[in-house]
């Protein structure tokens, strides 16, 4: 579904890469720090001279980063499929009865704090990776459903009229007109959802998940500020890298001239 920006097509790969400078820079920082944390040991030792162990020992930072990304990624993927699917269903004639309920529930659900949702998911689903993915998925659905609905409902009726006039069927109209027009709003919803989920997944460390939240929790429990800093820096960089990538995607879609 990705399209070349109109008018910028001839500029070639160099300028396209330049446009992705910010996310790539954050990503490079993230990977360098995750891979090279051990080399910073003198720095942390200077910072915390009285502690024997200054680098989080229980797992490699790249592994923690990978697990964090896996949980957030799986949850986001499922949330996009289910969320966009649900919003599309309730805006079709067959599902329109459910539209008011889904719209209201999605906007009310967003008042629930993500921590509370994670905390309530544990008694129901138990400890472990899957319960966290389910909790992230449930909460991550809400902004996606809400924005997809807003995107689909915000389309000028005359555009849909024109699409019908051209002889488009329901599916064709959805795939070629409605969804492409709604993409910027949907992307904004996915961005909100993923940003919240990166933060909430880190809290998963309190229920035994081993991800970038683990050094922070372990550092707080053991009074080791160096661990806390290591985890916090990496999560912060991860959030910034992902967020700036989404910003880039949104801009690119809008500048491609069909948004």
């Amino acid at each position: 579904m990705r399209r070349e920006p109109i008018g910028a097509g001839g500029a070639g790969g160099a300028s396209r890469l330049a446009a992705w400078r910010a996310p790539l820079a954050w990503l490079a920082c993230l990977l360098l720090l995750a891979a090279g944390m051990a080399w910073l040991e003198p720095l942390f030792r200077w910072f915390q001279p009285d502690t024997r162990q200054v680098i989080y020992p229980h797992a490699d930072f790249l592994t923690l980063l990978g697990r964090h990304l896996l949980v957030v990624g799986v949850a986001a993927l499922l949330a996009v499929v289910i969320g966009v699917g649900a919003a599309v269903l309730v805006t079709r004639p067959a599902g329109r009865d459910f539209l008011p309920l889904v719209a209201q529930a999605a906007s009310m659900g967003q008042t629930f704090p993500p921590v509370a949702v994670l905390a309530l998911a544990v008694p129901v689903l138990g400890f472990g990776t899957w319960p966290i993915i389910v909790a992230l998925l449930l909460y991550g659905l809400l902004p996606i459903v809400r924005n997809t609905l807003a995107g689909l409902q915000g389309i000028d009726p005359s555009v849909l009229e024109a699409a019908r006039g051209m002889g488009m069927g329901g599916v064709q109209q959805l795939l070629q007109v409605e969804l492409p027009l709604a993409v910027p709003v949907i992307l904004a919803g996915i961005r909100t959802s993923v940003t919240i989920n990166i933060a909430t997944a880190a809290l998963g460390a309190t229920v035994g998940a081993s991800n970038l939240g683990a050094p922070i929790i372990s550092g707080i429990v053991n009074g080791n500020t160096a661990y806390v800093l290591q985890g916090a820096l990496l999560i912060g960089l991860l959030a910034l890298a992902v967020d700036s990538a989404f910003e880039r995607l949104q801009r690119r879609w809008i500048s491609s001239g069909i948004g």
């Binding site: 933060a199 800093l229 985890g231 959030a239 910034l240």
Partner: peptide, 19 residues
């Protein structure tokens, strides 16, 4: 920028300078 930083990380980053 601040809003993007996850809460747990921001709490953690504030811990050292405040201490």
């Amino acid at each position: 920028f601040l809003q993007t930083i996850p809460s747990l990380a921001l709490f953690g980053l504030l811990l050292a300078p405040l201490a």
